[in-house]
Design a protein around this nucleic acid. Structure first.
Ligand SMILES: [Mn+2]
Ligand SMILES: [Mn+2]
Ligand SMILES: [Mn+2]
Ligand SMILES: [Mn+2]
Lengths: 221, 221
DNA sequence: AACATTTGTTAGATTAATCTAACTTTATAT
DNA sequence: ATATAAAGTTAGATTAATCTAACAAATGTT
């Protein structure tokens, strides 16, 4: 059995690998707020458990078994977030911290029950995919809103960063998942975007924001 | 802030004190499955935090502040058990282990939400009182079924032991909280009781069982 | 009272997870 | 190519939580 600490390392490795192709000791150190020597020694420990491939000075890699462990923790995290939002009435901005703790509960039945009550959801409240019980994830191809061109319509499908501040900002702009966004123009100087959605006409979104919103192109009729 | 480990000691002290009037190092050691020297050193640590009054060779005592901390953890435990049973469909026999873990989640909002969704319940699925947000508990005066006399009726109000095995046994006998039980006779040799309830006529309950069932006398009309 | 048992403490070791300081390797910039 | 900076490792210390062994105090039994 892996400790809570080990679980957090595995999860961080999984996430960082998917964000930037590979993980290094330094990335993990920054992400987890833990000094590099500590990370190195944990990597050796996880290597001994065959959850990580570790070679000095080389990028870190999860083994297949490590990937699966990580995905299953992420499954618990995301099911929890979904349960908190859908069944307990929390806002999407406040569930991450709670899920960060609940994800370590050891009780398959607990998470199976959530899954069942939620009707086996495929995505979490932030649009991220929920791994299945074997740890498999279906990755959807999304675009960043910042990569889209004027005079197109897109559907807001996921957010890239689920920090409380960012999500509160989105709330204040009434930007929520599922929304159809029409792109009017992009300021060449700073990539600020003018968009419309719902009853919001000509809203201005900075690149800080458009780079964190994941969208799908809509077929125009 | 107290660690998960410290929280478990506080909770155990609170429970054992209420069960047998006082707690000793030895009781805690057995209850928590931790050797006595470890308990002694933890008591010194909790004494330094003013959660415990510790004097060598004397019975252990929680300070007021220690009692409150303990009661608040028990509040989280019991709200969790109630939520699992009432809102997630678990049986009362399977919630204790999960609650044992969830009780350590640090998020007042999480437990406030449970409390609200449950409508501010006063008792948990095993009939134990749920402390309020200030850590106050309303103790009800119950009798053990074993203390009752023939030809009376009682209401089953709580169980004294919530081990999975015992609760499964009660399930198999269709003994659940709220039930009205009529006592027919008691075998003088071994205190075995003959009782009726629901559509069960003349069920035999051993003293092992009747000592673990808490009841209220019913006024006969 | 004397002896035995149970309970509790002290001392010292162990393991997990962390740190700092010093050193080494790899990458980057002139 | 050399120097500088960044990334990574090693060694050794620290803290929390646990243990065993040895000893001491309190309790119980003849
Ligand atoms: Mn999250
Ligand atoms: Mn976590
Ligand atoms: Mn319980
Ligand atoms: Mn616990």
């Amino acid at each position: 059995m892996n400790s809570l600490t080990e679980e957090n390392y595995l999860k961080a490795m999984f996430t960082l690998t998917n964000e930037k192709g590979e993980v290094n000791v330094n990335d993990l150190s920054k992400h987890l707020n833990i000094k590099m020597p500590t990370v190195t020694s944990m990597m050796k420990k996880l290597a001994a458990k065959e959850l990580v491939d570790y070679q000095s000075y080389k990028p870190l890699r999860l083994t297949e078994s490590g990937k699966k462990e990580a995905a299953l923790i992420i499954r618990k995290h995301r099911l929890t977030e979904m349960f908190l939002v859908e069944k307990m009435g929390f806002g999407w901005e406040s569930v991450h911290e709670i899920a960060e703790q609940v994800e370590h509960v050891r009780s398959p039945e607990f998470f199976d029950k959530m899954d069942e009550i939620l009707g086996h959801p495929k995505i979490d409240p932030h649009g991220s995919p929920i791994p299945d019980k074997d740890g498999n994830i279906v990755w959807k191809e999304y675009l960043k809103l910042s990569e889209c061109v004027p005079d197109t319509e897109v559907r807001l499908s996921a957010v890239m960063n689920s920090s409380e501040d960012f999500l509160r900002f989105l709330n204040s702009k009434e930007l929520h998942l599922g929304l159809t966004i029409r792109i009017h123009s992009i300021e060449p100087f700073d990539q600020t975007m003018i968009v419309s959605y719902d009853n919001k006409m000509n809203e201005v979104l900075s690149s800080k924001v458009t780079e964190r919103l994941l969208v799908e192109k809509l077929m125009l009729p």
